Computed example of a mutant assay.
Amino acid sequence: MDVLSDVLTALRTGRPHAAHTQKTVPWGIRFPPSDGAGCHVLLEGSCWLIPAHGEPIQLSVGDVVFVPHGAGYALADQPGSPLVDFRIDADDTAPIGTPMLSEAGTTTRLLCAAYYFDRARSHPLLDDLPEVVHLPLQLGQPASLRAAIELLSAELSEPRAGTSSILTGLVDMLLLFVLRSWFDDRSTEGWAAVLTDPALMAALHGIHSEPQRSWTVAELAALSGLSRATFAKRFTAAAGRSPLSYLTWWRMTLAARRLRTTDDPLRSIATRTGYSTEFALTKAFKREYGVPPSRYRRGA
């Protein structure tokens, strides 16, 4: 079980989108606050990313930026340029790869991707990210990230049979490589430390591969090869919650996803998430979400 992929799969909603954006000077695009997360790669020209908080960031060709928290931001040729609002719906019928905001005689060209997450259930792995993840080209981006950008850009430029399915995989690949690059450079902080700690990852693999199992701290510590006390202290310090608290949190996250995306009966969801009865799941779910599973499903 790949923990990073597992987290993104559980939290993502709707369908990712990708497109080339081409603009002439002066130009500005405002992305209002939403459940979306934007990823942009500057392919040609120059521009600025203007976050909701903090100073504008000047981008150079090859730079990658990821704005994960849905706080709203803008892209513009200069910080003072007029901004036009832009929004794309997170639904399964929206097009992927459709050129956006294109104009002739372009001076700036970007590769843009959008993702949607369940903001009511954000994973601490994503919470650890800053308002803007900036990966400058001059700092030496990994070849894998550059390859994903080139493949995605090529597929958008020349759509062919199967492009829609290929783009979905490539957009996911882009996000995973961006996150991997960011966490690799910060391997001693927060969830970056978890992802690069073989002992903690062994325990997380156990939780993610068998969430229905009645895990004890001692069993998870045995997977990690650490003593019970050392494991519990190390896990809590890095992950921000105790091992069993994380297990419960993850079970509820999986239950919520199945309620949103399937018609599975509550009995089946309870079994998959480690609860012996529907009543036990309902009690735990209501404590976590404030509403019973049936009402959550209707709302979703």
Rank of each mutant, 00 (worst) to 15 (best):
T216K: 13
S81N: 12
M1F: 09
A143H: 09
D91F: 00
L152G: 07
I269K: 10
S164C: 06
G36H: 09
R186V: 03
R160T: 05
P79S: 07
A192I: 03
D92M: 10
M1G: 12
L281T: 06
V291E: 11
D172E: 10
A222K: 13
R121W: 12
C39W: 01
H208E: 13
P142Q: 08
A199Y: 01
L49H: 08
W182V: 04
D128I: 04
A229F: 04
G14S: 08
D92H: 11
D118R: 15
D118V: 05
H134E: 06
L11F: 01
F285H: 01
A300S: 15
R298W: 05
A114H: 10
S144K: 11
A76V: 04
W249I: 00
G274W: 06
L204W: 03
T108I: 03
R298L: 14
A18R: 04
R180Q: 13
G62V: 10
R234F: 01
A10W: 08
Q212A: 15
S242N: 04
G28R: 05
L174N: 08
F183Y: 15
T271E: 15
G290L: 02
A202G: 05
S245C: 00
L101S: 07
V217R: 13
L223Q: 13
P82N: 10
L259T: 01
A71T: 11
S153A: 14
E44N: 09
I57A: 07
D184P: 00
P130V: 06
H40N: 08
F235T: 05
L101Y: 07
L226K: 09
T277R: 03
L139H: 14
A94I: 01
V7N: 06
Q78T: 14
G206E: 09
A19P: 00
L204K: 02
L176G: 07
V25D: 12
A222H: 12
T273P: 01
A161V: 11
S153Y: 02
A238G: 03
D2S: 14
L151Y: 03
G14V: 04
A120S: 14
A202V: 02
A270V: 07
L259W: 01
S165W: 01
S81M: 02
W249Y: 12
G206N: 10
S165T: 09
P16M: 06
L195S: 04
T196W: 05
T248L: 15
A270W: 08
S181L: 00
H17M: 09
A37F: 03
A229E: 14
E103R: 13
A229R: 10
R186Y: 03
P159S: 06
V291Y: 00
L226S: 07
H17E: 06
A148D: 13
L167Y: 04
Q22L: 12
D91T: 12
A19K: 00
Y275N: 03
G240P: 07
A76N: 04
W250D: 09
I29T: 13
H208V: 14
L126D: 04
P51F: 02
M1R: 10
G290Y: 03
G105Q: 10
D6C: 01
T107L: 07
A192R: 07
D197A: 12
L110R: 12
Q58W: 02
A71G: 04
F31M: 10
